[in-house]
Write a protein that binds this DNA or RNA. Structure first.
Lengths: 220, 220
DNA sequence: GGGCGAATCAAACGATCGTTTGAGAATACG
DNA sequence: CGTATTCTCAAACGATCGTTTGATTCGCCC
């Protein structure tokens, strides 16, 4: 069960595979990164993937689950600290939603690569993957929507979801660092991320708050 | 030079390959869709791709160029109609930026698939592709930034680009129809798109307009 | 310390990948 | 009509893919 103490310098074989897979999937995509690249980067034998995970698809699933569970709980615990409180502001709720996601990309571990994997997963538009994400995030989104509704009592439930959807889009985009804004050399990575978070939160707050003309059915 | 008149029922071999490639790249990704799938869907011989395009990479480039040139010119002509006019509002500029992109996904042709290809390209995060997009869109973005600066005189140039970046993220996300909001059966596809466009434009207008505290250098 | 399951390894499996080849069919043009 | 050019086609190329195999090594426990 336990790994041999000196078989690897730092971590177990499973963990090294997961780390290498995360990086390579982010760079070359799921189909673009081969198991030979992954096992070479992890410095393990090729057969180790199928031995420990069963197949490449199962490995991909594990890469997701490991990070999503963490992001998931961070968001919910941040929300739990402020939900229902009388002095909670809209910006605080957005912060609980946005900051754990952006923080994920600047942790010292290999988690930074995962945000690009996640963004890529959105692009894959795979129905199986969509369902997987929906199952893992559905209740999170619902909890946030409830708190947003408390913050914006004049807004229809439908509008809440529309706007939360837009925020998610901007956040996904920002997480992957697609932006046209290139970080200058004299700005540290973490400061750049912090600026992105602040801009995004303030932008989103203004967008969420703007007066609704909800009942207007789109004609066109 | 010209294609044989009856070799294909509707279009030339090159066009049928481009159409099939667009659809399959959107569904399975660039690495995930094989040339055998593409040529089978296009009902042409396998060797036709390398004959007409030279390689798979060149085919991918052509898929992009065909649609980007169209989107490019539509945005610029929409901007040209309103730029510098005294009665032009912020929403109009955003409309010129957003609507051509969203319209692309509801044209009757095969263009609908391309928006997902475009979103996937962002996720690929390939440096070569990024440069390609930057070369094709750099001047477009600069022209829009100029008009946004005229609409928002109190805003620093840097903030303009930050916020325009956020809008682009939300737009890319919306174009690919990633959203959690599922279209209901009694709402037509075009009405759904129209609603998305209106929500996005109003959201973006509020976000672009909100008061700046630009000079605050991010600490932490 | 001998047996046992867990883990790692090199090697090979069949399948599929992008690309190339060379012959044949279709078209253009003198 | 005959030649030249353009295009299509079936077949095969070498490379690489995910996966499997069988032997070997390692750590653990009775």
């Amino acid at each position: 069960m336990t790994a041999s103490p000196f078989a690897s310098r730092e971590r177990t074989t499973k963990e090294r595979i997961l780390g290498a897979a995360e990086t390579l999937f982010a760079t070359h995509g799921f189909a673009g990164a081969s198991l030979r690249q992954v096992t070479a980067a992890a410095k393990v034998n090729l057969a180790a993937v199928n031995y420990h995970f069963g197949s490449k698809d199962k490995l991909i699933e594990e890469v997701f689950r490991r990070r999503l569970d963490e992001l998931n709980s961070r968001r919910l615990s941040a929300l739990a600290r402020i939900a229902g409180q009388p002095d909670t502001k809209l910006e605080d709720v957005l912060d609980a939603y946005i900051r754990p996601a952006l923080d994920l990309s600047r942790t010292d571990g290999g988690a930074a690569a995962f945000v690009r994997v996640l963004a890529r997963a959105y692009a894959e538009h795979n129905e199986t993957l969509r369902r997987f994400l929906s199952d893992n995030y559905g209740h999170v989104l619902r909890q946030f929507a409830t708190e947003f509704a408390r913050q914006l009592p004049g807004l229809a439930k439908e509008d809440i979801y529309w706007r939360l959807d837009i925020v998610t889009g901007a956040l996904t985009y920002a997480m992957a660092d697609f932006g046209i804004i290139q970080r200058k050399n004299d700005v540290a990575e973490r400061d750049h991320r912090e600026q992105a978070a602040e801009h995004l939160i303030r932008f989103a707050a203004a967008g969420m708050r703007h007066p609704s003309i909800s009942s207007s059915t789109a004609t066109r």
